[in-house]
Simulated scan of single mutants.
Amino acid sequence: MSASTSSAGEPTVPLSDERAALDILTKTVFGLWDTVNNLTRLRPTKRDRYRVTIFGSARVDPNHWVYAAVRDTAAELTRLGCDIVTGGGPGLMQAANEGVKLADPDGTQQQSVGIRVELPFEQDVNAFVTQAFEHKTFFTRLHHFVLVSDAFIVTPGGIGTVLETLMVWQLLQVRHLHDTPLILAGHFWDGLLDWARAVMLKPDAPLISPGDLNIPQILPDGPSIVRAVREHHARWKAKQG
């Protein structure tokens, strides 16, 4: 083999040639993404688990009424036959995972899943997660949420929760996700839709379609959320045969 030729017959590139080395790295990363995208096209012929992802703040104290509301809603969804998926951290993520424990103390019926990301804080998965996944980047973590979820519920949260919400909203808008409820819990999120309606739908320069604002459902409380998920869950079960 020539010193200037690789085993694949391609010319070698010295690291001192930074432009060529960067070009190889860029093409390789894009190639890896193509591989991952192809792998995620694979789906089981039949699915026996319906999973609801609950997004929400890591900062809400367990003594806050919102914590109890999220916990109790997750418990009702567990009794309905849903696995619960969260970011695995504290706050409202913990509340949702605790709801699974409340409804299924032995953990024999439904799964309580946490999909984590490495951070300099929030190091430990919360105590109510029974199946944990760890990611090094938000990119892969968000992709994981999308792959495993049949419905999304968004409880009060900050910047991270907004990121998660807008990603799912956009995937539904461009039809990369289909028939997947995106439920915004309570009136906390009214302002987000009001802003989108006022700023993105200006008559002189509309930036979205009016129907885009109908993608997320704002539901006022736990019982209405459970009813919406129950209806979707029933349709999902019918499709499974």
Rank of each mutant, 00 (worst) to 15 (best):
L119F: 13
D204A: 13
G89F: 04
A95V: 08
H176T: 04
A96W: 02
G114A: 07
Q170M: 11
L193Y: 11
Q109W: 01
L163Q: 14
T161E: 08
Q173S: 11
K136P: 01
R116N: 15
I115T: 03
H135F: 15
D106V: 10
G160K: 07
P203H: 10
A96C: 05
V148M: 12
R197C: 01
G186T: 12
V100L: 04
G87E: 10
G158P: 08
T161C: 03
D83M: 01
I153T: 01
T108M: 06
E122G: 03
A198L: 11
R197G: 02
F152I: 01
Q111F: 00
L192Y: 11
P203A: 07
F145S: 01
D150T: 02
L172Y: 05
P203G: 07
F138P: 02
Q110Y: 00
T165C: 14
Q110G: 00
G107Q: 08
R79L: 09
T86N: 04
G91S: 03
F188M: 06
I159E: 06
V154S: 04
Q111V: 13
M167F: 13
L207P: 02
V148C: 07
G157C: 09
D104I: 12
K136D: 08
T78N: 00
Q170K: 13
R141W: 12
D124G: 08
F188K: 10
L182R: 02
W189P: 10
G186L: 10
N97K: 07
R141H: 10
D194K: 15
F128N: 15
V117C: 13
A185T: 01
R141I: 14
E164T: 07
T161N: 05
R175N: 09
P156H: 10
G89H: 03
P105F: 14
A103S: 06
L92A: 03
Q110L: 03
L182C: 02
F133E: 12
D150W: 02
G186H: 10
D124W: 07
